[in-house]
Design a protein around this nucleic acid. Structure first.
Lengths: 334, 334
DNA sequence: CTGAAAGCGCTTACAG
DNA sequence: CTGAAAGCGCTTACAG
């Protein structure tokens, strides 16, 4: 592969001049510039990113670790992060933790080694040695979707509690009294918060949640299938089930349909996190809609603030309850 | 940040010894190893990937450029690529072209600068200066999903023609005679092939495709909505529509449902590329299922063959027609 | 405006 | 087994 030396030789200038042309340094004559660019073209020269990174301080890459590539929520988030980052002149390298704390730390490790300018992380666990290290060493980091207990880090996330309460109110208004939950892992704040809000909301209606009506999944599809089976294959199943994310809702739906049952009439079903196709299901799925795109964009903005020496603010974005037919008799407005 | 020098000083050895410990070089005494590892731990030392890459030849990162992160097909592909790559000891850096040839080339450029060991590309256009350059310089590359005309590159893809023909046979058997297509861009081989196979299959039944029944989309949702509108808002709409990918099918479905129409009875609808939720729609969507995961895994295997100096083979994987209810009266087995 | 030279943080023959 | 030293490909003060 051609190096800067080859280009310099071909253009009859020094490597310093080549470097200046490539980095748009003003003090280069038009003629030098022209000859360098011609040589670059002719040799199909691509600067070596490793050498450049090693030498110069300004890094234009951000690192992003998402919870699960197969989850449309994180996909949409990643897309928003990329768009906002590019608008600010940054590129984004993405790693997929697959909801596995070890994988998360592996990618964090790689990103640290790649010397990214800053980190965006959707944490997959309560604690993580690597995250603590990042913090200890003062590397810029912003959390998305989930905070980490005991670490005072800027985080951009949804208001899980309010939306969950509204959803429970809706279910109770439809006549449901035995409502079960397929919760996310309690090691994650999103898991805990949605579960706590669920209990509190039911309590406000004088209802209690039996232990057997609380199933803990892992935010992935298979756990939704399994949990739904455990809830429904009992003599006294609940009349409605709240799945704490879209993939577990998909799993629950799969179980229901495989049994020939119909959501809405046979069993109420609601999801935290809305998806484009929820409206096409028979009946359409009631869901809590998050401001996913804005979450991604806001996180990038806060990270860039950090990179520029300004403080980052944590932000909590409101959600919206989208009432459709899957919890029973349709209500008026949504 | 701590460097290898700091570690060497703290451990009372040379940087060479630190490097040897870190790279599992055998000739290091247990004592040296221990002291080095302790220092690494204490200083929270992370090797600088840039320096390491610059110095040593062995790169363990593969580059992947996908067509569109918001398309579940590419997401599943990316996940399979990552899994297979990790199984072989490689990490994957992913870039999202967003179906935009310029973005594709930008990411190719970044990946070239990052000196990835090899490239995996889902091309977004017929030609690309950067791809030609990659080829000219003999960098290992394997295409996925789409080939590029005029470039003899290994490619792992689906057998678009056979599956499309089976789908058309199904539609004709259900009584459809006016079948329209929402095709992908004809600059992409997947766009052209599915369109050509569609025409040929209809011709085999003595049917012709009118120009007005051919709409060209861009494989993204919005174009599916628009194309469906153009097809249906005419005095003589077709009786069935074939969308050439899942996102355009989603768009078409959105248009149909927004008009209060029902697929199957009001308008036949089929998709190239199956999705987990297609079975939950009312009625379930008939689709051509690709072996997406195997496509990703096979591509990684071929790339690794290339990296090891062996030749890569192109592969074409068969698809499966999954008949559900969205094209009209249900058939027997699927 | 331009070049010679130092140096970023590693790895790896080369001696010993 | 270990260390001194060269060098990977760049960028950037420092002179001129």
């Amino acid at each position: 592969m051609a190096t800067i030396k080859d280009v310099a030789r071909a253009a009859g200038v020094s490597t310093a001049t080549v470097s200046r042309v490539l980095n748009d340094h003003p003090s280069v004559t038009a003629e030098s510039r022209e000859r360098v660019l011609a040589a670059v073209e002719r040799l199909a020269y691509h600067p070596n990113a490793a050498a450049r990174t090693l030498r110069s301080a300004d890094v234009t890459t951000l690192g992003l670790v998402i919870g699960d590539v197969l989850n449309p929520f994180f996909t949409e988030l990643a897309r928003a992060v990329e768009d906002e980052a590019r608008a600010h002149g940054y590129y984004v390298i993405t790693g997929n933790a697959d909801e596995d704390p070890r994988r998360q730390d592996e990618y964090l490790d790689i990103l640290l080694e790649q010397r990214v300018a800053g980190l965006l992380l959707c944490p997959t666990d309560r604690v993580s040695p690597l995250v603590e290290e990042v913090v200890r060493r003062g590397r810029p980091i912003v959390l998305i979707d989930r905070s980490i207990d005991g670490l005072d880090l800027p985080v951009v996330r949804s208001d899980n509690a309010t939306a969950t309460r509204e959803l429970v109110d809706h279910l109770v208004a439809l006549g449901h009294r035995r409502i079960a939950i397929i919760s996310g892992p309690t090691s994650l704040v999103t898991g805990r918060e949605r579960l706590a809000a669920f209990r509190a909301a039911l309590a406000a209606h004088g209802l209690e949640v039996a232990d057997r009506d609380v199933r803990i999944g892992d935010f992935q599809t298979a756990s939704g299938v399994a949990a739904m089976g455990e809830l429904m294959e009992r003599p006294d199943p609940p009349t409605a089930v709240f799945a704490a994310d879209n993939l577990m809702a998909l799993g629950a739906l799969r179980w229901v349909r495989d049994r020939g049952l119909r959501p809405g009439s046979d069993i109420g079903l609601a999801s935290f996190d809305d998806l484009p196709w929820f409206e096409f299901v028979d009946p359409p799925i009631t869901a809590v809609r998050q401001q996913t795109e804005e979450m991604g964009r806001a996180a990038v903005r806060e990270l860039i603030a950090l990179l520029n020496g300004r403080p980052a603010r944590s932000r909590t974005l409101p959600c919206q309850l989208v009432i459709r037919g899957s919890c029973g008799e349709r209500q008026g407005a949504q």
